[in-house]
Design a protein around this nucleic acid. Structure first.
Length: 210
DNA sequence: AAGAGGATGGCCT
DNA sequence: GGCCATCCTCTTC
């Protein structure tokens, strides 16, 4: 486990306007941003953009449903979904109400609350505490109860704060992870050289159950 | 009412 | 590299 780093690079809350832009633009600016909940802070090193109705890989591509309703709401809200019967993943909603784009938070570096994160992810190395979308949710104790939370409010239980800006030379792009449709769009963004960036995995169709 | 498959992760060889 | 846990959601019948 080791000791806890007490320094935090987190600055002011991101304003609503930050999210009031296309997902790809927001995704780029989310690199280096700090998300905090339940005593743990994570500096984002890897994100993916999803462009709603124009993106076959987006949960919102076929229109609004009970699950994706938050994506169609105002920007700056958390969209949390449950997958594979055991994992949660989280997005930050972009664009004005009615436009369902979002950024999936894929990986980051735990910069404070390491012990709390390690307690939620026993056996994990420090590097792997938030290396992957479901791992990051676990480390931050994010689940369906937080679906729809407005992270731009100062009183929000989940906060998203400015970090140290990432230079253009470090921003890297590539295809998104684990999706069947529109896998060619290079809408996965990460910080070059960061050890917490997840390993790329292409989509594989699962065998039929019996 | 039923079936398919999932924006994953941990463990195995 | 492969396997598969586990349950929710959407699609189709």
């Amino acid at each position: 486990m080791g000791h806890q780093r007490l320094t935090s690079a987190a600055g002011p809350l991101l304003p609503r306007g930050f999210f009031h832009r296309p997902a790809l633009t927001v995704a780029r600016d989310l690199l280096g941003v700090v998300i905090e909940h339940a005593g743990v802070a994570v500096r984002l090193t890897e994100v993916e953009a999803y462009d709603g109705a124009n993106d076959p890989a987006s949960h919102a591509y076929r229109g609004e449903t009970a699950r994706n309703a938050v994506m169609f709401g105002p920007p700056g809200h958390l969209y949390v979904y449950f997958t594979y019967g055991m994992h949660f993943c989280m997005n930050l909603v972009c664009q004005p109400e009615g436009t369902a784009s979002a950024v999936l938070l894929r990986a980051g570096e735990v910069i404070s609350g390491r012990d709390a994160a390690a307690k939620r992810r026993p056996g994990s190395t420090v590097r792997d505490l938030a290396r992957g979308p479901a791992r990051m949710c676990r480390a931050l104790d994010i689940d369906r109860a937080l679906n729809g939370v407005d992270v731009t409010r100062r009183t929000s239980v989940v906060t998203v704060r400015r970090g140290i800006p990432i230079g253009e030379d470090l921003v890297t792009t590539g295809p998104r992870v684990g999706i069947a449709e529109a896998a060619d769009r290079p809408w996965r963004l990460w910080i070059a050289g960061e050890p917490t960036v997840s390993v790329y995995r292409p989509h594989v169709r699962r065998a039929r159950r019996r």
